[in-house]
Amino acid sequence: MSISLVKGQKIDLTKGNDLKRGVIGLGWDINNYDGGDEFDLDASAFLVSTSGKAENDLDFIFYNNLKHPSGSVIHTGDNRTGEGEGDDEQIIIEFAKIPTQIDRIAITVTIHDAVNRKQNFGQVSNAFVRVFNEESNEELLRYDLTEDYSVETAMVVCELYRHGDEWKFNAIGSGFQGGLGALCRNYGLDA
């Protein structure tokens, strides 16, 4: 049975769930938009050490770097339109392969070329993140982003974080202006 979360809520992912490979599914719809450009939302993952920063560019998983060298985080590919039902993009997490120096994995979404296209998350609706067990296909949790993000072009949707030997999920929903560059700087990488 899936648990529905609200912003700021935390929940165990691996404790008691026997979750070895979790899939982070992200989805969204675009409101009526007549700007002439396609909306291209991109999911990414930042693998962050206890310093609060990604150690290098390989710890940034996105459409141009689909797999972490450890094999612990895999992006399944870029969906450039977001059309259709269900997940628009997915990131697979294999918990046993996460390097010991990684303390958190931030799951983010950005709007590609948002400034030039005059796009923001206020034009996005029905955005969600969910986690399901890849083996059983059972959805464990879902977090619907319901706030109005009228100027934000990037968002930290959630974080997975280490708690002892287990992993937990934190529903964040924090918006950023400045797109992907702002997120990279936030996690210690050059934009």
Rank of each mutant, 00 (worst) to 15 (best):
I91S: 14
N17M: 06
G173N: 12
E89Q: 00
G178C: 04
I91L: 13
K20L: 15
H68K: 00
A182E: 10
D165A: 05
G8A: 04
N32K: 13
T153A: 03
V48P: 06
G27T: 06
D148S: 14
D40W: 09
P99E: 07
E134C: 05
D29Q: 09
V109M: 15
T108M: 04
H68R: 01
E159W: 06
I3W: 11
H112K: 11
L26R: 02
G25R: 00
R21H: 08
E55Y: 08
S125Y: 12
E85C: 14
L183P: 07
A114E: 09
G84H: 10
A45D: 01
I102Q: 03
I98S: 05
V48W: 02
N126Y: 13
D190K: 12
L66G: 07
I172L: 15
V6H: 09
Q9P: 00
E138C: 13
E135P: 12
E85A: 13
I74W: 03
E135S: 14
F132R: 06
V109D: 08
E38C: 06
L160D: 07
G86C: 05
R117D: 00
Q90K: 06
K67T: 03
E134M: 09
E83R: 12
N170Y: 13
P99Q: 04
N137Q: 12
E152R: 05
W28Q: 09
D103Y: 14
A43R: 10
A96W: 10
S44A: 06
V156T: 13
I172Q: 09
A43I: 10
K10W: 13
N170K: 12
W167L: 00
E134H: 05
N186F: 04
D78K: 13
L26H: 02
A96D: 15
T76F: 04
L140W: 00
G27H: 05
E138V: 11
V73M: 00
I74D: 02
N17H: 14
D165M: 03
L41M: 05
